[in-house]
Design a protein around this nucleic acid. Structure first.
Length: 425
RNA sequence: GGAGAGGUGGCUGAGUGGUCUAAAGCGACUGACUCGAAAUCAGUUGUGCCAAUUUUGGCACCGGGGGUUCGAAUCCUCUCCUCUCCGCCA
Protein backbone atom coordinates (compact mmCIF):
# COMPACT_ATOMS: atom_id res chain seq x y z
CA UNK A 1 0.00 0.00 0.00
CA UNK A 2 1.22 3.45 -0.87
CA UNK A 3 1.03 6.28 1.64
CA UNK A 4 -2.02 8.44 0.89
CA UNK A 5 0.00 11.47 2.03
CA UNK A 6 2.67 10.68 -0.52
CA UNK A 7 0.03 10.42 -3.23
CA UNK A 8 -1.46 13.73 -2.08
CA UNK A 9 1.89 15.55 -1.95
CA UNK A 10 3.45 14.02 -5.01
CA UNK A 11 0.79 12.74 -7.41
CA UNK A 12 2.96 13.00 -10.52
CA UNK A 13 5.72 10.89 -9.02
CA UNK A 14 3.24 8.17 -8.10
CA UNK A 15 1.56 8.32 -11.51
CA UNK A 16 4.90 7.94 -13.28
CA UNK A 17 5.79 5.08 -10.96
CA UNK A 18 2.70 2.97 -11.49
CA UNK A 19 2.82 3.68 -15.22
CA UNK A 20 6.22 1.99 -15.32
CA UNK A 21 4.52 -1.05 -13.85
CA UNK A 22 1.90 -0.99 -16.57
CA UNK A 23 -0.95 0.45 -14.49
CA UNK A 24 -2.82 3.37 -15.96
CA UNK A 25 -2.42 6.52 -13.86
CA UNK A 26 -5.99 7.90 -13.94
CA UNK A 27 -6.80 5.93 -10.80
CA UNK A 28 -4.63 8.37 -8.87
CA UNK A 29 -6.92 11.29 -9.71
CA UNK A 30 -9.92 9.25 -8.58
CA UNK A 31 -8.17 8.47 -5.33
CA UNK A 32 -7.31 12.10 -4.70
CA UNK A 33 -10.92 13.12 -5.33
CA UNK A 34 -12.21 10.56 -2.83
CA UNK A 35 -9.57 11.61 -0.32
CA UNK A 36 -10.70 15.21 -0.61
CA UNK A 37 -14.29 14.25 0.13
CA UNK A 38 -13.18 12.07 2.97
CA UNK A 39 -11.27 14.84 4.69
CA UNK A 40 -14.12 17.33 4.34
CA UNK A 41 -16.49 14.81 5.90
CA UNK A 42 -14.09 14.09 8.76
CA UNK A 43 -13.91 17.79 9.58
CA UNK A 44 -17.69 18.03 9.65
CA UNK A 45 -18.43 14.96 11.72
CA UNK A 46 -15.65 15.55 14.22
CA UNK A 47 -16.93 19.00 14.95
CA UNK A 48 -20.30 17.53 15.84
CA UNK A 49 -18.66 14.85 17.96
CA UNK A 50 -16.73 17.48 19.89
CA UNK A 51 -19.99 19.26 20.63
CA UNK A 52 -21.65 16.01 21.61
CA UNK A 53 -18.86 15.19 24.07
CA UNK A 54 -19.00 18.62 25.62
CA UNK A 55 -22.75 18.64 26.12
CA UNK A 56 -22.70 15.13 27.57
CA UNK A 57 -20.39 16.36 30.30
CA UNK A 58 -22.74 19.26 30.96
CA UNK A 59 -25.68 16.91 31.25
CA UNK A 60 -23.80 14.88 33.82
CA UNK A 61 -23.15 18.01 35.89
CA UNK A 62 -26.76 19.20 35.57
CA UNK A 63 -28.06 15.85 36.76
CA UNK A 64 -25.78 16.02 39.77
CA UNK A 65 -27.17 19.43 40.60
CA UNK A 66 -30.72 18.14 40.16
CA UNK A 67 -31.52 20.35 37.18
CA UNK A 68 -34.01 19.44 34.46
CA UNK A 69 -32.28 17.96 31.38
CA UNK A 70 -35.17 16.86 29.17
CA UNK A 71 -34.88 19.80 26.79
CA UNK A 72 -31.15 19.54 26.19
CA UNK A 73 -31.36 15.77 25.76
CA UNK A 74 -34.02 16.18 23.07
CA UNK A 75 -31.74 18.62 21.27
CA UNK A 76 -28.79 16.28 21.45
CA UNK A 77 -30.80 13.44 19.95
CA UNK A 78 -30.84 15.35 16.68
CA UNK A 79 -27.11 15.90 16.77
CA UNK A 80 -26.54 12.21 17.43
CA UNK A 81 -28.69 11.24 14.49
CA UNK A 82 -26.74 13.56 12.22
CA UNK A 83 -23.45 12.07 13.47
CA UNK A 84 -24.72 8.57 12.76
CA UNK A 85 -25.62 9.49 9.23
CA UNK A 86 -22.31 11.22 8.52
CA UNK A 87 -20.37 8.35 10.07
CA UNK A 88 -22.11 5.92 7.74
CA UNK A 89 -21.23 8.10 4.73
CA UNK A 90 -17.65 8.38 5.90
CA UNK A 91 -17.35 4.64 6.35
CA UNK A 92 -18.49 4.06 2.80
CA UNK A 93 -16.03 6.60 1.41
CA UNK A 94 -13.16 5.14 3.43
CA UNK A 95 -13.84 1.60 2.33
CA UNK A 96 -14.04 2.80 -1.26
CA UNK A 97 -10.73 4.64 -0.90
CA UNK A 98 -9.11 1.70 0.78
CA UNK A 99 -10.18 -0.83 -1.81
CA UNK A 100 -8.79 1.42 -4.55
CA UNK A 101 -5.49 1.85 -2.70
CA UNK A 102 -5.15 -1.91 -2.32
CA UNK A 103 -5.05 -2.25 -6.11
CA UNK A 104 -2.22 0.27 -6.58
CA UNK A 105 1.12 -1.50 -7.08
CA UNK A 106 4.34 -0.48 -5.43
CA UNK A 107 6.44 1.91 -7.48
CA UNK A 108 9.84 0.81 -8.82
CA UNK A 109 13.12 2.03 -7.35
CA UNK A 110 15.08 4.53 -9.47
CA UNK A 111 17.73 1.88 -10.23
CA UNK A 112 15.16 -0.39 -11.89
CA UNK A 113 15.22 -0.41 -15.71
CA UNK A 114 11.96 0.69 -17.30
CA UNK A 115 10.42 -1.87 -19.59
CA UNK A 116 7.34 -3.80 -20.47
CA UNK A 117 8.34 -7.44 -20.09
CA UNK A 118 11.25 -9.82 -19.53
CA UNK A 119 13.00 -8.70 -22.71
CA UNK A 120 13.96 -5.49 -20.90
CA UNK A 121 15.54 -7.33 -17.95
CA UNK A 122 19.25 -6.84 -17.42
CA UNK A 123 21.73 -9.61 -16.78
CA UNK A 124 23.89 -8.48 -13.85
CA UNK A 125 26.37 -11.33 -13.54
CA UNK A 126 27.03 -14.96 -14.26
CA UNK A 127 28.64 -17.52 -12.01
CA UNK A 128 30.38 -20.69 -13.16
CA UNK A 129 30.10 -22.11 -16.60
CA UNK A 130 27.75 -24.32 -18.53
CA UNK A 131 28.94 -27.91 -18.02
CA UNK A 132 30.26 -29.67 -21.10
CA UNK A 133 29.00 -33.17 -21.87
CA UNK A 134 30.49 -35.77 -24.20
CA UNK A 135 26.93 -36.86 -24.95
CA UNK A 136 23.68 -35.00 -25.44
CA UNK A 137 22.34 -34.21 -21.96
CA UNK A 138 18.76 -35.30 -21.34
CA UNK A 139 15.99 -33.31 -19.75
CA UNK A 140 15.26 -34.12 -16.12
CA UNK A 141 11.88 -35.73 -16.79
CA UNK A 142 13.44 -38.44 -18.96
CA UNK A 143 16.13 -39.25 -16.42
CA UNK A 144 13.67 -39.11 -13.50
CA UNK A 145 11.31 -41.48 -15.23
CA UNK A 146 14.11 -43.90 -16.08
CA UNK A 147 15.41 -43.86 -12.51
CA UNK A 148 11.83 -43.99 -11.14
CA UNK A 149 12.37 -41.09 -8.75
CA UNK A 150 9.55 -38.78 -9.96
CA UNK A 151 6.11 -40.00 -10.97
CA UNK A 152 3.71 -37.42 -12.37
CA UNK A 153 1.30 -40.01 -13.73
CA UNK A 154 0.57 -41.56 -10.39
CA UNK A 155 0.37 -38.12 -8.78
CA UNK A 156 -2.33 -37.33 -11.33
CA UNK A 157 -4.30 -40.35 -10.09
CA UNK A 158 -4.04 -39.11 -6.53
CA UNK A 159 -4.86 -35.49 -7.28
CA UNK A 160 -4.62 -34.32 -10.87
CA UNK A 161 -2.32 -32.69 -13.35
CA UNK A 162 0.69 -30.60 -12.27
CA UNK A 163 1.44 -32.64 -9.18
CA UNK A 164 4.32 -35.01 -8.67
CA UNK A 165 5.16 -37.98 -6.53
CA UNK A 166 8.76 -38.10 -5.34
CA UNK A 167 9.93 -41.68 -4.91
CA UNK A 168 12.85 -43.45 -3.29
CA UNK A 169 16.10 -41.54 -3.68
CA UNK A 170 14.18 -38.75 -5.42
CA UNK A 171 12.17 -38.15 -2.25
CA UNK A 172 15.35 -38.41 -0.24
CA UNK A 173 17.16 -35.93 -2.47
CA UNK A 174 14.32 -33.43 -2.10
CA UNK A 175 14.50 -33.78 1.68
CA UNK A 176 18.30 -33.50 1.58
CA UNK A 177 18.09 -30.26 -0.38
CA UNK A 178 15.65 -28.74 2.07
CA UNK A 179 17.79 -29.68 5.07
CA UNK A 180 21.00 -28.57 3.37
CA UNK A 181 19.59 -25.16 2.49
CA UNK A 182 18.10 -24.59 5.94
CA UNK A 183 21.42 -25.49 7.53
CA UNK A 184 23.36 -23.06 5.33
CA UNK A 185 20.93 -20.21 5.89
CA UNK A 186 20.80 -20.70 9.66
CA UNK A 187 24.43 -21.62 10.36
CA UNK A 188 26.31 -19.52 7.81
CA UNK A 189 23.99 -16.65 6.92
CA UNK A 190 22.40 -15.82 10.26
CA UNK A 191 18.76 -16.64 9.63
CA UNK A 192 16.41 -17.95 12.32
CA UNK A 193 14.47 -21.00 11.25
CA UNK A 194 10.68 -20.94 11.54
CA UNK A 195 8.05 -23.43 10.48
CA UNK A 196 4.83 -21.51 9.98
CA UNK A 197 1.21 -22.39 9.23
CA UNK A 198 0.66 -22.99 5.54
CA UNK A 199 -2.99 -22.01 5.67
CA UNK A 200 -3.44 -18.30 6.25
CA UNK A 201 -6.34 -15.90 6.59
CA UNK A 202 -7.43 -13.20 4.17
CA UNK A 203 -5.76 -10.40 6.11
CA UNK A 204 -2.32 -12.02 5.94
CA UNK A 205 -2.70 -12.59 2.22
CA UNK A 206 -3.72 -8.95 1.72
CA UNK A 207 -0.78 -7.65 3.72
CA UNK A 208 1.85 -9.19 1.49
CA UNK A 209 0.01 -8.12 -1.68
CA UNK A 210 -1.40 -11.39 -3.08
CA UNK A 211 -4.89 -10.08 -2.35
CA UNK A 212 -7.15 -8.54 -3.42
CA UNK A 213 -5.79 -8.51 -6.96
CA UNK A 214 -4.58 -12.08 -7.43
CA UNK A 215 -7.24 -14.20 -5.79
CA UNK A 216 -7.51 -16.35 -8.94
CA UNK A 217 -3.95 -17.61 -8.44
CA UNK A 218 -4.64 -18.97 -4.97
CA UNK A 219 -6.10 -22.19 -3.61
CA UNK A 220 -8.56 -21.61 -0.81
CA UNK A 221 -10.40 -23.68 1.76
CA UNK A 222 -14.05 -23.54 2.74
CA UNK A 223 -15.42 -23.45 6.27
CA UNK A 224 -13.27 -22.07 7.64
CA UNK A 225 -12.13 -19.75 4.85
CA UNK A 226 -8.37 -19.87 4.52
CA UNK A 227 -5.85 -19.74 1.71
CA UNK A 228 -3.03 -22.15 0.94
CA UNK A 229 0.17 -20.15 0.82
CA UNK A 230 1.81 -19.57 -2.59
CA UNK A 231 5.08 -18.81 -0.77
CA UNK A 232 6.34 -18.76 2.82
CA UNK A 233 6.71 -15.01 2.36
CA UNK A 234 3.07 -14.73 3.40
CA UNK A 235 3.05 -16.37 6.85
CA UNK A 236 6.60 -15.30 7.70
CA UNK A 237 6.14 -11.61 6.85
CA UNK A 238 2.95 -11.65 8.91
CA UNK A 239 4.81 -12.90 12.00
CA UNK A 240 5.25 -9.26 13.02
CA UNK A 241 1.90 -7.96 11.82
CA UNK A 242 0.59 -5.16 14.08
CA UNK A 243 3.84 -4.84 15.99
CA UNK A 244 6.19 -2.01 16.84
CA UNK A 245 9.67 -3.53 16.85
CA UNK A 246 12.69 -2.18 18.67
CA UNK A 247 15.30 -0.58 16.48
CA UNK A 248 18.04 -2.57 18.21
CA UNK A 249 16.31 -5.82 17.19
CA UNK A 250 16.65 -4.94 13.49
CA UNK A 251 17.51 -6.47 11.15
CA UNK A 252 15.46 -9.64 11.72
CA UNK A 253 16.19 -12.59 9.42
CA UNK A 254 13.93 -15.64 9.10
CA UNK A 255 14.18 -18.71 6.95
CA UNK A 256 11.40 -21.21 6.49
CA UNK A 257 10.80 -24.38 4.56
CA UNK A 258 7.20 -24.76 3.40
CA UNK A 259 5.34 -26.38 0.59
CA UNK A 260 3.81 -23.76 -1.73
CA UNK A 261 0.57 -23.93 -3.68
CA UNK A 262 -0.25 -22.05 -6.86
CA UNK A 263 -3.03 -22.41 -9.38
CA UNK A 264 -0.73 -21.31 -12.22
CA UNK A 265 -3.80 -20.18 -14.10
CA UNK A 266 -2.85 -19.22 -17.64
CA UNK A 267 0.66 -20.66 -17.37
CA UNK A 268 2.16 -21.92 -20.61
CA UNK A 269 1.30 -25.52 -21.29
CA UNK A 270 4.79 -26.20 -22.62
CA UNK A 271 6.12 -25.88 -19.07
CA UNK A 272 4.23 -28.88 -17.77
CA UNK A 273 6.96 -31.34 -18.68
CA UNK A 274 8.82 -32.44 -15.61
CA UNK A 275 8.34 -30.63 -12.35
CA UNK A 276 9.28 -27.02 -13.09
CA UNK A 277 5.72 -25.75 -12.81
CA UNK A 278 3.62 -27.65 -10.31
CA UNK A 279 0.58 -26.72 -8.25
CA UNK A 280 2.52 -27.83 -5.20
CA UNK A 281 6.25 -27.37 -4.72
CA UNK A 282 8.81 -27.00 -1.95
CA UNK A 283 10.75 -23.91 -1.16
CA UNK A 284 13.10 -22.58 1.48
CA UNK A 285 12.32 -18.91 1.85
CA UNK A 286 14.34 -16.01 3.28
CA UNK A 287 12.52 -13.05 4.86
CA UNK A 288 14.02 -9.88 6.32
CA UNK A 289 12.68 -7.01 8.40
CA UNK A 290 15.15 -4.14 8.20
CA UNK A 291 15.76 -0.45 8.89
CA UNK A 292 14.68 1.63 5.85
CA UNK A 293 18.18 3.09 5.48
CA UNK A 294 19.70 -0.33 4.88
CA UNK A 295 17.16 -2.14 2.74
CA UNK A 296 19.03 -1.90 -0.56
CA UNK A 297 22.27 -3.19 0.98
CA UNK A 298 20.20 -5.94 2.58
CA UNK A 299 18.77 -6.84 -0.82
CA UNK A 300 22.27 -7.40 -2.23
CA UNK A 301 23.15 -9.59 0.75
CA UNK A 302 19.93 -11.51 0.34
CA UNK A 303 20.76 -12.31 -3.27
CA UNK A 304 24.24 -13.41 -2.19
CA UNK A 305 22.73 -15.70 0.46
CA UNK A 306 20.56 -17.36 -2.16
CA UNK A 307 23.48 -17.61 -4.61
CA UNK A 308 25.66 -19.29 -2.01
CA UNK A 309 23.52 -22.44 -2.28
CA UNK A 310 24.09 -22.70 -6.02
CA UNK A 311 27.81 -22.06 -5.59
CA UNK A 312 28.15 -24.83 -3.04
CA UNK A 313 26.30 -27.15 -5.41
CA UNK A 314 28.51 -25.90 -8.24
CA UNK A 315 25.58 -25.03 -10.49
CA UNK A 316 26.01 -22.41 -13.19
CA UNK A 317 23.57 -19.51 -12.88
CA UNK A 318 22.99 -15.89 -13.78
CA UNK A 319 21.53 -13.00 -11.82
CA UNK A 320 18.98 -10.83 -13.60
CA UNK A 321 17.64 -7.44 -12.60
CA UNK A 322 13.96 -7.35 -13.48
CA UNK A 323 12.57 -4.38 -15.37
CA UNK A 324 9.62 -2.41 -14.03
CA UNK A 325 7.01 -4.27 -16.05
CA UNK A 326 8.24 -7.75 -15.12
CA UNK A 327 8.35 -7.13 -11.37
CA UNK A 328 5.70 -8.31 -8.96
CA UNK A 329 2.90 -6.08 -7.71
CA UNK A 330 4.42 -5.39 -4.29
CA UNK A 331 8.09 -5.08 -5.20
CA UNK A 332 10.31 -2.01 -5.56
CA UNK A 333 13.27 -3.93 -6.92
CA UNK A 334 13.72 -7.58 -7.78
CA UNK A 335 16.63 -9.80 -8.78
CA UNK A 336 15.98 -13.23 -10.20
CA UNK A 337 18.53 -15.99 -10.00
CA UNK A 338 18.29 -18.36 -12.93
CA UNK A 339 19.97 -21.73 -12.88
CA UNK A 340 21.14 -23.52 -16.00
CA UNK A 341 19.28 -26.66 -17.05
CA UNK A 342 21.52 -28.33 -19.68
CA UNK A 343 18.91 -30.91 -20.63
CA UNK A 344 16.22 -28.35 -21.27
CA UNK A 345 18.90 -26.02 -22.66
CA UNK A 346 17.65 -22.98 -20.83
CA UNK A 347 17.88 -21.04 -17.60
CA UNK A 348 15.08 -21.45 -15.08
CA UNK A 349 14.31 -18.97 -12.33
CA UNK A 350 15.10 -20.65 -9.03
CA UNK A 351 14.99 -17.59 -6.82
CA UNK A 352 13.38 -14.21 -6.84
CA UNK A 353 14.70 -11.67 -4.32
CA UNK A 354 12.78 -8.46 -3.70
CA UNK A 355 12.82 -5.32 -1.64
CA UNK A 356 9.27 -4.22 -0.89
CA UNK A 357 10.38 -1.11 1.01
CA UNK A 358 7.43 -0.17 3.25
CA UNK A 359 4.73 -1.46 0.88
CA UNK A 360 4.00 -4.65 2.82
CA UNK A 361 4.90 -3.14 6.20
CA UNK A 362 2.28 -0.43 5.69
CA UNK A 363 -0.38 -3.01 4.87
CA UNK A 364 0.63 -5.27 7.74
CA UNK A 365 1.32 -2.38 10.15
CA UNK A 366 4.88 -3.49 10.95
CA UNK A 367 6.82 -0.62 12.51
CA UNK A 368 9.84 0.14 14.62
CA UNK A 369 10.66 2.83 17.17
CA UNK A 370 13.85 4.73 16.41
CA UNK A 371 16.37 6.42 18.70
CA UNK A 372 14.24 9.56 18.91
CA UNK A 373 11.17 7.53 19.89
CA UNK A 374 9.64 8.10 16.48
CA UNK A 375 7.60 5.30 14.99
CA UNK A 376 8.25 4.37 11.38
CA UNK A 377 7.56 1.49 9.02
CA UNK A 378 10.23 -1.17 8.56
CA UNK A 379 11.24 -2.37 5.13
CA UNK A 380 10.53 -5.99 4.27
CA UNK A 381 12.43 -8.19 1.84
CA UNK A 382 12.23 -11.76 0.77
CA UNK A 383 13.77 -14.21 -1.58
CA UNK A 384 13.75 -17.88 -2.29
CA UNK A 385 16.71 -19.62 -0.86
CA UNK A 386 15.83 -21.71 -3.02
CA UNK A 387 12.91 -23.41 -4.78
CA UNK A 388 13.48 -27.15 -5.02
CA UNK A 389 11.13 -27.69 -7.96
CA UNK A 390 13.73 -25.88 -10.06
CA UNK A 391 16.79 -26.97 -8.14
CA UNK A 392 16.23 -30.72 -8.15
CA UNK A 393 15.77 -30.78 -11.96
CA UNK A 394 18.92 -28.66 -12.28
CA UNK A 395 20.88 -31.19 -10.22
CA UNK A 396 19.50 -34.10 -12.23
CA UNK A 397 20.43 -32.42 -15.51
CA UNK A 398 23.82 -31.00 -14.48
CA UNK A 399 25.00 -34.13 -12.67
CA UNK A 400 23.74 -36.73 -15.14
CA UNK A 401 26.03 -39.38 -16.58
CA UNK A 402 25.97 -40.94 -20.00
CA UNK A 403 24.09 -43.99 -18.72
CA UNK A 404 21.42 -41.81 -17.10
CA UNK A 405 22.62 -41.97 -13.53
CA UNK A 406 22.79 -38.93 -11.30
CA UNK A 407 25.83 -38.09 -9.20
CA UNK A 408 24.92 -36.56 -5.84
CA UNK A 409 26.72 -33.23 -5.33
CA UNK A 410 29.27 -33.63 -2.61
CA UNK A 411 27.66 -31.25 -0.03
CA UNK A 412 24.40 -33.22 -0.18
CA UNK A 413 25.94 -36.63 0.50
CA UNK A 414 25.89 -36.31 4.30
CA UNK A 415 22.14 -35.66 3.96
CA UNK A 416 21.73 -38.77 1.79
CA UNK A 417 23.26 -41.25 4.18
CA UNK A 418 26.51 -41.17 2.22
CA UNK A 419 24.92 -42.15 -1.10
CA UNK A 420 26.91 -40.61 -3.95
CA UNK A 421 24.98 -41.69 -7.03
CA UNK A 422 21.41 -42.50 -8.02
CA UNK A 423 21.29 -45.60 -10.21
CA UNK A 424 18.47 -47.54 -11.73
CA UNK A 425 17.22 -50.22 -9.37
C1' G B 1 -17.27 -31.13 19.31
C1' G B 2 -19.47 -30.08 24.72
C1' A B 3 -19.20 -27.11 29.43
C1' G B 4 -17.02 -23.07 31.98
C1' A B 5 -13.65 -18.72 32.74
C1' G B 6 -11.39 -14.71 30.56
C1' G B 7 -9.32 -10.80 26.80
C1' U B 8 -7.82 -3.27 29.71
C1' G B 9 -1.39 0.56 27.92
C1' G B 10 5.65 -2.63 27.01
C1' C B 11 4.13 -6.21 31.34
C1' U B 12 1.04 -7.30 35.96
C1' G B 13 -3.61 -5.51 37.19
C1' A B 14 -8.03 -2.14 39.21
C1' G B 15 -12.23 -0.26 37.03
C1' U B 16 -19.83 -3.09 36.18
C1' G B 17 -23.46 3.80 32.80
C1' G B 18 -21.51 10.37 33.80
C1' U B 19 -14.47 14.71 36.55
C1' C B 20 -11.94 7.62 32.77
C1' U B 21 -8.20 13.15 30.84
C1' A B 22 -8.14 4.68 32.64
C1' A B 23 -5.91 3.78 39.40
C1' A B 24 -1.72 1.34 41.26
C1' G B 25 2.68 -1.46 40.67
C1' C B 26 6.67 -3.20 37.52
C1' G B 27 9.69 -2.09 33.42
C1' A B 28 11.83 1.63 30.18
C1' C B 29 13.72 6.63 29.41
C1' U B 30 15.48 11.56 31.35
C1' G B 31 17.47 14.35 35.37
C1' A B 32 19.50 14.85 40.55
C1' C B 33 22.84 12.51 44.12
C1' U B 34 27.75 9.46 42.97
C1' C B 35 34.62 8.91 40.91
C1' G B 36 31.20 5.19 38.79
C1' A B 37 27.29 1.81 39.77
C1' A B 38 23.36 0.24 42.92
C1' A B 39 19.80 2.26 46.04
C1' U B 40 16.96 6.66 46.62
C1' C B 41 14.34 11.05 44.91
C1' A B 42 11.89 13.92 40.87
C1' G B 43 9.89 13.86 36.07
C1' U B 44 8.43 11.47 31.40
C1' U B 45 6.19 7.17 29.14
C1' G B 46 0.64 4.42 23.64
C1' U B 47 -1.26 4.34 18.41
C1' G B 48 -3.87 6.35 14.31
C1' C B 49 -6.55 10.21 11.79
C1' C B 50 -8.08 15.54 10.79
C1' A B 51 -6.73 20.80 11.06
C1' A B 52 -2.82 24.20 11.71
C1' U B 53 2.41 23.50 12.15
C1' U B 54 5.73 28.35 16.16
C1' U B 55 3.24 26.60 20.90
C1' U B 56 -1.11 23.39 19.63
C1' G B 57 -6.40 21.97 19.06
C1' G B 58 -9.95 18.19 17.83
C1' C B 59 -11.59 13.02 16.93
C1' A B 60 -11.10 7.74 17.48
C1' C B 61 -9.06 3.45 19.91
C1' C B 62 -9.89 -1.01 26.64
C1' G B 63 -9.53 -8.28 21.14
C1' G B 64 -12.80 -7.19 16.46
C1' G B 65 -17.81 -5.90 14.18
C1' G B 66 -22.80 -4.18 15.19
C1' G B 67 -26.45 -2.19 18.71
C1' U B 68 -28.85 0.49 23.16
C1' U B 69 -28.05 5.68 25.36
C1' C B 70 -27.73 12.75 25.52
C1' G B 71 -23.36 9.78 27.44
C1' A B 72 -20.26 2.90 27.07
C1' A B 73 -13.94 -0.07 29.12
C1' U B 74 -18.71 -0.80 31.80
C1' C B 75 -25.23 -2.87 29.20
C1' C B 76 -27.02 -6.10 24.75
C1' U B 77 -25.58 -8.99 20.33
C1' C B 78 -22.48 -11.51 16.87
C1' U B 79 -17.51 -12.94 16.11
C1' C B 80 -12.20 -14.01 16.92
C1' C B 81 -8.57 -15.47 20.32
C1' U B 82 -6.58 -17.50 25.13
C1' C B 83 -7.05 -20.70 29.44
C1' U B 84 -9.43 -24.94 32.36
C1' C B 85 -12.27 -29.50 32.35
C1' C B 86 -14.68 -33.40 29.28
C1' G B 87 -14.83 -35.97 24.47
C1' C B 88 -12.09 -37.20 20.01
C1' C B 89 -7.29 -37.59 17.92
C1' A B 90 -1.50 -37.58 14.92
Amino acid sequence: MLDIKKIRDNPQLVKDGIKKKGVSPEIIDEILEIDKKRRALIAEVEQLKAKNNKVSDEIAKMKKEGKDTTKIITEMKEVTNKIKQLDADLQQIESNLNSKLLYIPNIPHESVPVGKDETANIEIRKWGEKPQFKFKPKPHWEIAEYLDILDNERAAKITGTRFTLYKGLGAQLERALINFMLDIQTKENGYTEVFPPILVNRDSMTNTGQLPKFENDLFETKDPDFFLIPTAEVPVTNIHKDEILKEKDLPIYYTAYTPCFRKEAGAYSKDIKGIVRMHQFNKVELVKFVHPDTSYEELEKLVNNAESILQKLNLHYRVVLLCSGDMSFASSKTYDIEVWHPGAERYWETSSCSNFEDFQARRARIKFRDKNNKVNFVHTLNGSGLATSRLLPAIIENYQTENMEVIIPEPLRPYMGGIDIIKKK
